[in-house]
Amino acid sequence: MPVSTDQTRDRLAGVLTEPLAASGLDVEAIDLTPAGKRRLLRVAVDKDGGVTLDDIAEATREVSRILDETDVMGEQPYTLEVSSRGADRPLTEPRHWRRNVGRLVTVTLADKASVTGRIIESDDTRAVLDVDGTSTEVGYGDVKKAKIQIEFNRKES
């Protein structure tokens, strides 16, 4: 019986998470999609302070080594892409909030209210936003969706 994409993704997470964590990297996403006769494997990584091109190169070598040493990808050919988490991914973990302190975020709350503010601090359970000069606490359990807003002309204060 063929292995499903979800099963392969789970197996990939199992074999990649620990070795990349040993390099100081968090596996943020694993996407596996068909691409003609091949598959496209995308692995997104991140770390405190952000990832550099050297981090991506090291992660690519490590992922490639692991995939060569295991049968997790099976026999079908694939293309590997390793990248940073990217600014467009939603904030879903406390570490995402911590890594984005100082950035502007739009948050949709469970009660459907929306708030936009700058993250001024965060911990394991909540973040504090500066919303038009007022500190607003947002518990992660109340967040339905949160995305960083890209600021092209932000003046550093």
Results as ranks from 00 to 15, higher is better:
Met1Tyr: 08
Pro2Cys: 08
Ser4Met: 02
Thr5Lys: 15
Thr8Asp: 04
Leu12Asp: 04
Gly14Val: 08
Leu16Gly: 11
Leu16Val: 08
Thr17Leu: 06
Thr17Met: 13
Ala22Met: 11
Gly24Val: 02
Val27His: 01
Val27Ser: 06
Glu28Gln: 12
Ala29Gln: 12
Ala29Cys: 06
Ile30Gly: 05
Pro34Gly: 13
Pro34Val: 09
Leu40Gly: 04
Leu41Arg: 13
Leu41Tyr: 11
Val43Lys: 03
Val43His: 01
Lys47Ser: 07
Gly49Gln: 04
Gly50Met: 05
Gly50His: 06
Thr52Glu: 07
Asp55Ile: 04
Ile56Glu: 01
Arg61Ala: 06
Glu62Trp: 08
Glu62Gly: 07
Val63Trp: 07
Val63Ile: 13
Arg65Gln: 15
Arg65Leu: 08
Leu67Val: 10
Thr70Ile: 12
Gly74Ser: 10
Glu75Trp: 05
Gln76Ala: 14
Gln76Leu: 13
Gln76Tyr: 02
Tyr78His: 11
Leu80Ser: 07
Ser84Phe: 02
Arg89Lys: 15
Pro90Asn: 02
Leu91Glu: 00
Thr92His: 00
Pro94Ala: 05
His96Gln: 06
His96Phe: 04
Asn100Gln: 08
Leu104His: 03
Leu104Glu: 12
Val105Met: 02
Ala113Tyr: 01
Ser122Lys: 12
Asp123Trp: 08
Asp124Phe: 10
Asp124Pro: 01
Asp130Cys: 09
Ser135Arg: 14
Ser135Glu: 15
Thr136Ala: 02
Val143Gln: 00
Lys144Cys: 03
Lys145Gly: 04
Ala146Ile: 00
Ala146Lys: 01
Lys147Val: 07
Gln149Gly: 02
Gln149Cys: 02
Ile150Trp: 10
Ile150Ala: 14
Phe152Cys: 07
Asn153Ile: 04
Glu156Asn: 13
